[in-house]
Design a protein around this nucleic acid. Structure first.
Lengths: 138, 138
DNA sequence: TAAAACTTGCAACATTATTGCAAAAATCTT
DNA sequence: AAGATTTTTGCAATAATGTTGCAAGTTTTA
């Protein structure tokens, strides 16, 4: 079973306290995390700058991916599939619950292809669905 | 032919210089605008706060809609169809060009339905495609 | 274990966003 | 059309968020 350090090593990263802790946060959390979530977590008391740099490093290495939102914040979530450096395979749909505000990676729901107008060449597609999640329904 | 003031009146808004100018910017621009685009526009010299509040008002009234991005900025674009207050119909796909960075509302491309896992109830769906636009191809 | 490479935290700074309130402008009323 | 009412604006202050350089501290390499 692969642990924090293994994931870091596999990606050619030095194994440091901050990276282990932040990675652990992602492994322990079901949904996606915003920068603020990580900074506010009482267990983690790293410098803001370290959090910014760690998240950027993880994105670069393909350990986490970004989820687009309309509220001026970036959400980050673990890449479940094998993402290579600079080549993400996070083509799954994201679900943001209007009730509990949690964000889910629907790993089994693939972003469908769409037919673009003539002249437009797609490279990547992201899809975000809002609504009520399985924990808040009823 | 409906002009700036008509649109504002129709939405129950006072007709003011800032609202007319900002709305004009949207009517004149093909793509979507970020807050910074509006603020940096030389023709518009309003207070930052006014721009924030005007954009929020326009969103509330359904005159413009927000486009999700992964770069910590919110893009705004005119609602082409009749959006009612608090009830947007901006269910079209957005395209962001990696070359010129312009954002297009593909009004004729509808966001496809996806089958969500059991327990998830969708309310709204957004889709953003990146790639090369019609102006930059070749 | 020492040297090399990398990471962290601090400090300073830059940008972006929010709130209260008084002045100014737009709308309403007569 | 002029004053009263309502709404909007701009300023000031404050908060939140993001970036960069550099010295000190860690991790990795050999």
């Amino acid at each position: 079973m692969e642990n924090h350090s293994d994931i870091l090593k596999r990606n050619g990263l030095s194994v440091t306290e901050s990276r282990k802790k932040i990675l652990e946060l992602f492994l322990d959390s079901e949904g996606a995390l915003a920068h603020a979530d990580i900074e506010k977590n009482t267990d983690v008391a790293f410098d803001r700058v370290t959090v910014y740099r760690t998240l950027q490093t993880f994105v670069d290495k393909g350990i986490i991916h970004q989820i687009p939102t309309t509220d001026n914040s970036i959400l980050y979530a673990l890449c479940k599939h094998n993402c290579q450096q600079g080549h993400h395979h996070d083509n799954h749909v994201h679900f943001i619950c209007n009730s509990c505000d949690k964000t889910f990676c629907l790993d089994d729901v693939t972003v469908p292809d769409v037919k673009l107008p003539k002249g437009f060449t797609p490279a990547q597609a992201a899809m975000v669905v809002t609504g009520v999640c399985i924990d808040c329904k009823g």
